[in-house]
Simulated scan of single mutants.
Amino acid sequence: MIMTRIHFLVATATLAFVFSLAYASDPSPLQDFCVAIDEPKAAVFVNGKFCKDPKLATANDFFFSGLNIPGNTSNPVGSYVTPVNVAQLAGLNTLGISLARIDFAPYGLNPPHTHPRATEILVVLEGTLYVGFVTSNPDNKLFTKVLYPGDVFVFPEGLIHFQFNGGKSNAVAFASLSSQNPGVITIANAVFGSKPPISADVLTKAFQVDKKVIDDLQAQFWWDNN
């Protein structure tokens, strides 16, 4: 009986220690970086938003209208993302969730991109989409699937992913993301359209191509479909 109690106490203490380590870790950031500052007058909360007095909140703080309106896909990539994150819906602040509508013209593409702060779950409402994501180094394994209306696919947090409408008709999908401010990094835009530009010497070495190829890519206008 005494040994049983001892084992129970040891197990309880071990679990308490493990959980204390888990809760001691830093929370996931909700912005790209947070530069430490000693002057509070120039500081903001870590999530980038101050909170309204709850007594002053109204139903409109938790309401957004417009996801029934198709996005304008008349652009070079043939897609448009209509986001509903904390920037559009103030009531999402600190709730850790957001939403987006994605419209695709025939052969439209939501280019390879990542969400540094969120996992994405996508459901197709209209049309057909070829979707996929690539795992991290060293495997860089590609997972793909063709989705039809009602199909759902998950893109793990931080991994490069894409959606492509290979059909001759429009496509519509909705995505939910596990952050109020998931962020988006479109790979081509970030690498070839950064301001100021990344050194051509760096990109020539990284992609193992001629400098003229890099110059041509950096000279293009990289469309942001968000």
Rank of each mutant, 00 (worst) to 15 (best):
S79I: 11
A100N: 05
W223Y: 10
A87G: 12
F19Y: 14
S25H: 09
S194W: 01
N85E: 10
G158C: 06
F133A: 05
L92E: 06
L95D: 07
A36N: 11
I187D: 08
S199C: 09
I37M: 03
I97V: 14
K195W: 05
G183Y: 04
T82F: 02
N47Y: 12
F8N: 02
I6C: 03
Y80N: 10
F162L: 00
A175H: 08
G183P: 04
T135V: 05
F174H: 09
F221T: 15
A206T: 04
F192R: 02
V154P: 12
S179Y: 13
A87Q: 14
K212C: 02
A16I: 11
V184H: 03
V123Q: 14
D139I: 05
T12Y: 00
S79W: 11
V213Q: 01
K49G: 06
H115S: 08
P83D: 13
N47V: 08
F33K: 10
D38S: 15
V154D: 10
D224Y: 07
V44P: 07
G48P: 06
A105S: 12
A57E: 15
V131H: 06
G91I: 05
F8A: 06
K168Y: 08
F17I: 12
N47F: 06
G150Y: 11
V172W: 05
D53C: 00
D224C: 00
A42L: 13
D224W: 04
H113N: 12
A59F: 07
G150I: 09
S169I: 13
L129W: 04
G108I: 11
P40G: 11
